[in-house]
Design a protein around this nucleic acid. Sequence first.
DNA 1: CGCGGGTTTGATGATGCTCAAGCCCGGTGG
DNA 2: CCACCGGGCTTGAGCATCATCAAACCCGCG
Lengths: 194, 194
Amino acid sequence: MYDRLLQHIAARVRLTVRESEECTGYFLHRSVRKRQYLLQEGDVCRQIAFVGDGCLREFTVDHTGTEHTLQFAIAGWWISDLNSFLSGRPSAHNIVAVHDSSVLLLDKEGREKLFAAVPKMERYFRLLLEANHVASHKRINETLSASAEERYLSFLKTYPALIEQVPQHQIASFLGITPQSLSRIRRELIHRHP
Amino acid sequence: MYDRLLQHIAARVRLTVRESEECTGYFLHRSVRKRQYLLQEGDVCRQIAFVGDGCLREFTVDHTGTEHTLQFAIAGWWISDLNSFLSGRPSAHNIVAVHDSSVLLLDKEGREKLFAAVPKMERYFRLLLEANHVASHKRINETLSASAEERYLSFLKTYPALIEQVPQHQIASFLGITPQSLSRIRRELIHRHP
DNA sequence: CGCGGGTTTGATGATGCTCAAGCCCGGTGG
DNA sequence: CCACCGGGCTTGAGCATCATCAAACCCGCG
């Protein structure tokens, strides 16, 4: 269970065996069944989650009741509402399991202790956040410059693992279009391509 | 010149006087005249920039020649194309001075040396990136869920300092709309409000 | 079976874009 | 001092894209 996390860390910083063992103690394992919430709007996000297995989704609900997907997270990804986690204020986001999943949770106190005990983990998180920043900028740039069809094609290329794991209407809500529009885009693509 | 940087750092991590002095050595001061480029599409982004004074803008140009603004940076902000900086590959972004500006530049090697010499700076950058992640998610959520008018109002609230510093068509390119649409939105707002 | 969620399809409409022209204003040169 | 120029902002008319509303379809599951 912790293997995937240690592997993920090892790909970014070099820990000794002792440090690796130290690390895992700060994490709490938890299983999340399909449709179960890890975070509900209105609650404070107390932990950040490393996905060991399965698939989670972070989304908001607007005043009309429509969902908007901020992020998917499959095995080897992190997910949380960092805004609420850092500020301690109630979250406006939801995090829910798309499939049965298992996650490793790290709370604020645990993370600070972890940084103190294994300073290299500070670097690990910095590297994570840098990669995240790059991905966010890419996504923002695409929403500014690309059509819905182009964004869908880019999604297919960037997250091939997701297309089979999440229902189409959730992909639509990630792309910022309605399920109907995505359906039509796909029809059009199939019609034009073999 | 370095005061603002040290102030910015001090607000996030506690450095000794010795550490503060150590820090500044890794930065290179540079003035950038209005319309001058700090980074041009096709070049590799060799440094990240802390804005001491003035205002810079990061944007891409799509295949039709239209500009899309990813970010503005005024005094006390950082700006760079992190993707190119980290990967060493040519950038697809441009960074240009909106007004005469002065920046402090930090290159990759300097940053690594800085982390080695002053480990707390690793934490400083992690904290920066966390705040950045929160802001990016907020922006993504808004493009998914809010109308052009709502995004404009949110922009006014979030970046009041910018509205007087940057021309309107650049704000439009940040919001993901045409200058014409922004003009109409403003007219509508003025018409409805005193 | 029949129910229910997800996807598809069609008809219609709103939002924001394109193209085109006019306006405002500050800067420049005669 | 003023005429002219150019960039940015505004306005208008027509259009494209995507949303909305509504209904049909598909398929797994109780």
